[in-house]
Nucleic acid binder design. Structure first.
Lengths: 225, 225
DNA sequence: CGGCATATATGAGTATCCTTCACATTTTTC
DNA sequence: GAAAAATGTGAAGGATACTCATATATGCCG
């Protein structure tokens, strides 16, 4: 469990006055627009400042560095998503519910990813630095945790470690699929998401519907090297 | 089908003389060492030159920019892998063969990823720029193509488009799993690879063993937005 | 050998950014 | 209304990828 808490803060100093809060919003909006237009690499700190109508110094008063702005935007996105996910999983009480809810989540996530050029650019940008990656990982673990909890509730006798790991992987692969899907043309993207959905749902079913020792012949050699 | 050919060349001018060929090798070796030690971000062009015992100008005579060196290293890696993949898939003549070969490939790939700090650093580096991503994508498509071909041979009546898409996704998700697995601790990494393997193999079986309209109730809503 | 063309080598210099800092201005507090 | 805290400024600093005029080595032809 490396990097539990963020080493570099997302914001240097929380703006307390009304004026500065508005300015910070303008900075974020400017960054957002610039990223949407040219990608996070091409985003220049000086441009963000200019577009927001503030000086470069003000920018750095609140955001410790360039990646902090990008992370701040990404975080808003993921926070929104978390709410969506928890809402969707809240009233799951059977396996059919779980499968249906998961399928709906995938579709909803795909829709959002397609509609949000900012996220597309952030994730495909080269400046996806370690902190952003860690943020994404932490978020993914949290989302997977929600899924694993519901799942565990439906299958109390399943191995929690394995369930958690599976949920985490499913989630991570879901994100990988989304990034892939939005980077190819729409038709292929749709196809890929559809296939992923089938794979994930199948795994959800397999883990809950059958006793653990089903199909053990597949495990060719458990560990490598 | 965007970005079929590389817009930026991997090398500016192929070294023709013996002397320069050796120097280019030294540059690559130096880059390799520095990346292995501190990651591709921390790699400085000036350091590469110094370590290789050449001037900064010589470096730029052969490599158009920093990412070109990284890509050149990545390409060597993927070329080796391609050979490995094709060899493994060459004498597949039944579905059992295919499943076994695929499982072996995953394990082998995982072993390599664990053993190659260079690749670990390259993929986890922030400077995974568009060109590298495109290179990876193209390579992935090629590998998936090999898989799809074998698969199609075993299942002539299957839909080629879907088969190709599935092979591509399986491959891409395999790479995502590897990157994830080597970025967490070993025990969790092993677990994740194992789960991925199961998912992938299940998908391989499902697509070949059953008629297409199996479990259509899973397709909650086919297209989104 | 001599000389011309081509390939290769050099590293100080340029360009581009991110980031800092000393100082100015506004807002809050008492 | 004055001290304190928060906020604002932009020129200057610093890091580093990359270029270019110039120099040297190598191959080639007579």
């Amino acid at each position: 469990m490396p990097a539990a808490t963020s080493p570099a803060p997302l914001i240097r100093k929380e703006p307390t006055q009304q004026r500065s809060r508005e300015r910070v919003e303008r900075m974020l909006a400017a960054a957002r627009d610039l990223i949407a237009q040219y990608g996070s690499d091409a985003m220049r700190m000086s441009e963000v400042a200019e577009r927001a109508g503030v000086s470069i110094g003000s920018l750095y008063q609140f955001f410790p560095d360039k990646s902090a702005i990008i992370r701040a935007l990404a975080e808003r996105f993921t926070v929104e998503n978390r709410a969506c996910i928890d809402a969707e999983l809240a009233d799951v009480s059977s396996e059919e519910d779980l499968l249906a809810a998961f399928a709906r989540l995938i579709d909803a996530y795909y829709t959002i990813c397609l509609a949000e050029p900012v996220m597309r650019e952030i994730w495909s940008g080269t400046q996806v630095d370690k902190t952003l990656r860690e943020l994404e990982l932490a978020d993914s673990r949290a989302s997977a945790e929600s899924l694993a909890n519901v799942w565990q509730r439906l299958q109390p006798e399943a191995d929690p470690v394995r369930l958690t790991a599976t949920a985490f992987l499913i989630w991570q692969l879901g994100e990988a699929t989304m990034r892939l899907a939005i980077s190819v043309d729409r038709a292929e993207g749709d196809r890929l998401v559809e296939i992923y959905k089938r794979m994930a749902l199948r795994e959800l079913m397999a883990n809950s519907a059958t006793p653990p020792d089903h199909r053990q012949d597949l495990r060719i050699n458990k560990s490598v090297a």
